[in-house]
C-alpha cells in the first residue's frame, strides 16, 4: 500500500474513530444528565440507547473528515517547521479541530446542537475524542505521508 493510500485511510479512520468515541460519550453524558434529574435507566436500555445514537456517525464522520483535513495539514506543517513531538502535534490538532468544529456550530446555530457538549466538561470530553483521532492518525501514518 502506498503512502498516499495509507494516509487517506488513516485520515478517514481517524475521523471514524473520533466520531465513534464522541457518539458513545455524548450518549452516555445525555443519559447521565437524565439520571441526575431522577430518571431510572437500566444497563440494557443504556446500551441500546448508545447503539441507537450511533446514527450520529452519519453527520460526525464527514464533518470530522473536513476538520481533520485542515488540522492535520497544519500539524504536519508545524511538525516539519518547528519539530518537536509528532504525537503531540497531531493529538493537539485532533482536539483543537473538534473544538473549532463545535464552536462553528454554535456560531451558525446560535446554540450547541451536539447535546453532549452543552457544558464545559462535555466540551472537554469531546476535545479528547478529537485527540484520539489525532493520535490514531499519527500512529497509522508513516512520517513521509504526514
Amino acid at each position: 500500500m502506498n503512502d498516499f493510500l495509507k494516509g487517506l485511510l488513516a485520515w478517514i479512520g481517524a475521523a471514524s474513530v473520533s466520531a465513534l468515541a464522541a457518539s458513545i460519550t455524548s450518549s452516555v453524558l445525555v443519559q447521565n444528565a437524565l439520571i441526575e434529574v431522577g430518571a431510572k435507566i437500566d444497563w440494557t436500555t443504556r446500551l441500546a440507547t448508545i447503539s441507537k445514537d450511533l446514527v450520529l456517525l452519519q453527520a460526525l464522520i464527514p464533518l470530522l473528515c473536513i476538520a481533520f483535513a485542515i488540522a492535520f495539514i497544519i500539524a504536519s506543517f508545524c511538525y516539519g517547521k518547528l519539530g518537536g513531538s509528532r504525537l503531540a502535534w497531531f493529538t493537539i490538532a485532533g482536539a483543537s479541530s473538534f473544538f473549532v468544529m463545535l464552536q462553528i456550530m454554535v456560531l451558525v446555530f446560535d446554540l450547541m446542537p451536539f447535546a453532549g457538549a452543552r457544558d464545559n466538561s462535555g466540551l472537554v470530553l469531546m476535545c479528547l475524542c478529537g485527540a484520539i483521532g489525532g493520535w490514531f492518525y499519527q500512529r497509522i501514518t508513516p512520517l513521509s505521508s504526514a
Binding site: S23, S26, S27, V30, Q31, L34, V37, G38, A39, I41, T45, A48, T49, K52, D53, V55, L56, Q58, A59, P113, F114, A115
Partner: peptide, 15 residues
C-alpha cells in the same frame, strides 16, 4: 425524560 421526539441530529434525547 419522556418525549416522542428525538434530537435534530438524530440522537436520542431519552429512551
Amino acid at each position: 425524560i419522556a418525549t416522542f421526539g428525538i434530537d435534530y441530529n438524530g440522537a436520542t434525547i431519552t429512551p
